[in-house]
Design a protein around this nucleic acid. Structure first.
Length: 276
DNA sequence: AGTCATGTTTGCGC
DNA sequence: GGCGCAAACATGAC
């Protein structure tokens, strides 16, 4: 789940539930998701008050009252939850921390354990250490244009590159390319300013729409490609209506791999580039 | 049983 | 350093 809109939704949840409260204890159920030694993490967070929250790309920050940050990255299957008593902890809770006032526990949930919890001294230090570009909601059209057109690489892997801009994941990039009507295998340096502007607008549209719907993709507008992804099969068992382009009811959405990642396009909306 | 997966990192060959 | 590709990580869902 966790691309930028999911992480923003988690951040808002944490903001509601935890800001102003003190972390009274830390329960590490599976140290695999820790990128810092457990003792160090415990010493850094227990007794600290959560002053606020932040986000950069797919990274969520809990700002501690001494200025340091607890950084959450959710990998491919991470989630946030809350529970009151230990037996009620959600399945796959790997780490939990208790909050002073409410007595609630925040749970870092992650079945596949690709997520990581770490510490940072500041957003800037973390951004530099992880080589993260500007957040996908913050990058300007001019910077996006400059960064894309400098490279002789397929545009899809470029948009997925967190050092170019941070927060776009596999399905969002497909959605952005569909909305901007650009084929994922167009080379960065072949894009016109008009096209990079369309990409910039599509990024804003897709991210804002997704955040508005708290990343519940089944509630997204019918004009979105996301309904063509196979995960939507369960919504209409036996029907393949969702595998057609929202703009071309007779054109089937195509699936193939770009840069090793499953990719969905409408072949009419997103014409393939001429062979090099 | 085998295949696929919303992310990131590393290694290899050119 | 750039690029394309593959694998690895660890596990659940279908």
């Amino acid at each position: 789940m966790p691309e930028l809109p999911e992480v923003e939704t988690y951040r808002r949840f944490i903001n509601e539930v935890a800001v102003g409260q003190t972390i009274t204890s830390l329960d590490v159920r599976d140290a695999h998701v820790l990128a810092v030694p457990e003792d160090e993490l415990r010493a850094a967070v227990v007794g600290r008050t959560i002053a606020g929250t932040g986000r950069l790309g797919k990274n969520c920050f809990l700002e501690l009252d001494n200025g340091r940050l607890l950084v959450l990255h959710f990998g491919m299957t991470g989630d946030i939850g809350a529970f009151r008593d230990a037996p009620d902890a959600p399945r796959f809770t790997r780490v939990a921390w208790q909050l002073s006032d409410s007595g609630l526990n925040l749970a870092f949930i992650d079945p596949r354990k690709f997520g990581r919890i770490r510490l940072a001294d500041s957003v800037e230090a973390y951004q530099k250490a992880k080589k993260l570009g500007p957040d996908a909601l913050q990058i300007s059209a001019a910077e996006l244009h400059q960064k894309l057109t400098r490279r002789r690489v397929f545009v899809k892997p470029l948009l997925l590159d967190q050092s170019l801009t941070a927060g776009l994941g596999n399905w969002i990039v497909d959605e952005v390319l569909f909305q901007a009507k650009i084929h994922p295998e167009r080379l960065g340096n072949s894009l016109t300013e008009k096209e990079t502007n369309a990409l910039h607008e599509a990024i804003q549209l897709v991210l804002k729409t997704a955040i508005q719907h708290e990343a519940h993709y089944r509630h997204f507008p019918a004009s979105f490609l996301i309904h063509a992804r196979e995960w939507d099969d369960s919504a209409t068992p036996g029907s393949d209506a969702h595998t057609y382009c929202p703009r071309h009811p007779k054109t089937k959405i195509e699936k193939f791999y770009v840069g090793g990642r499953a990719t969905y396009i409408c072949p009419r909306c997103q014409p393939a580039p001429a062979a090099a």
